[in-house]
């Protein structure tokens, strides 16, 4: 059984699978993002009430929270593949980790950018050294560090291992980001961000936010698999199957 797995996880057999999955993920992504944007802009109240009386700018929540979630989740996925690669020495898992990193970095940047554009009208500042903002910035540098370290080492196998170690050490930031507001005693980690509580969010706002989250997730699948196919072709360019592929001009 383990044997089958390794066979399935070979770049040659996964290349066409990824090629077939990409269009499917694009269709789901477009549906989810369309639904999320429609719901977020047209099925929600323009202004909030109570002790969080935000105006129209609260609509940044529909991209800010999904982007922040993806920034952390993709980092976990990246570390997962990097760790599997270190343990089992499987080529494909390192390629997966490489393919996820740039998309993760983009979502981390977007979480910071959209947060700045939301923080200015609501809190009164684009940036503050709030624990949550600071730890998210460190996560962005970790993504950049992973990509830079990998491209700085010429030997791909060494680059894979070195970057994987950096990624694993940096995993520390994910719980730090999470607990920077969700720590057991909110008085101890009080900051500008409030504790997150999905049950306190209006159903329409929550629905749009979750649709956008799943849309960003399937988007990440689509772009990671596209990038993975490029990485596979480059790394396996000497192998027979790539030659056959180019010979037949197969588009798969």
């Amino acid at each position: 059984m383990a044997l089958n797995w390794f066979k399935f996880a070979s770049p040659a057999s996964f290349y066409p699978i990824a090629g077939r999955l990409v269009p499917a993920f694009w269709i789901i992504t477009l549906i989810l993002l369309g639904l999320g944007l429609y719901w977020g802009f047209f099925e929600t109240a323009d202004r909030l009430g109570g002790s969080n009386a935000q105006k129209e700018y609260y609509r940044i929540i529909f991209i800010h929270v999904p982007a922040a979630w993806m920034s952390m989740w993709l980092y976990v996925v990246m570390v997962g593949w990097a760790a599997i690669g270190l343990v089992f020495n499987t080529r494909l898992s390192f390629m997966m980790a490489n393919a996820v990193a740039p998309t993760g970095a983009i979502f981390t940047f977007l979480a910071l950018w959209t947060g700045a554009f939301w923080g200015r009208p609501s809190w009164g500042t684009y940036w503050d050294w709030d624990p949550r903002l600071t730890s998210e910035l460190v996560l962005f540098f970790l993504y950049i560090g992973y990509i830079a370290l990998h491209s700085a080492i010429d030997d791909v196998r060494r680059a894979d291992r070195a970057a994987a170690l950096l990624a694993i050490v940096g995993l520390i930031m994910v719980p730090v980001i999470f607990w920077s507001i969700n720590c057991p005693d909110p008085n101890q980690c009080a900051a500008l961000h409030q504790r997150s509580d999905l049950t306190q969010i209006d159903a329409n706002i929550l629905f749009a936010m979750l649709a956008m989250t799943f849309g960003f997730w399937t988007y990440s699948f689509a772009t990671s698999f596209m990038r993975l196919r490029g990485i596979i072709l480059q790394r396996e360019s000497e192998s027979a199957w790539v030659r056959d592929l180019l010979d037949t001009g197969d588009k798969a």
Binding site: I63, W113, T114
Partner: peptide
């Protein structure tokens, strides 16, 4: 009146 912030965030995304 918050077009700059809303579209600034959505536009960059």
């Amino acid at each position: 009146g918050y077009a700059f912030f809303v579209w600034g965030a959505y536009g960059m995304t």
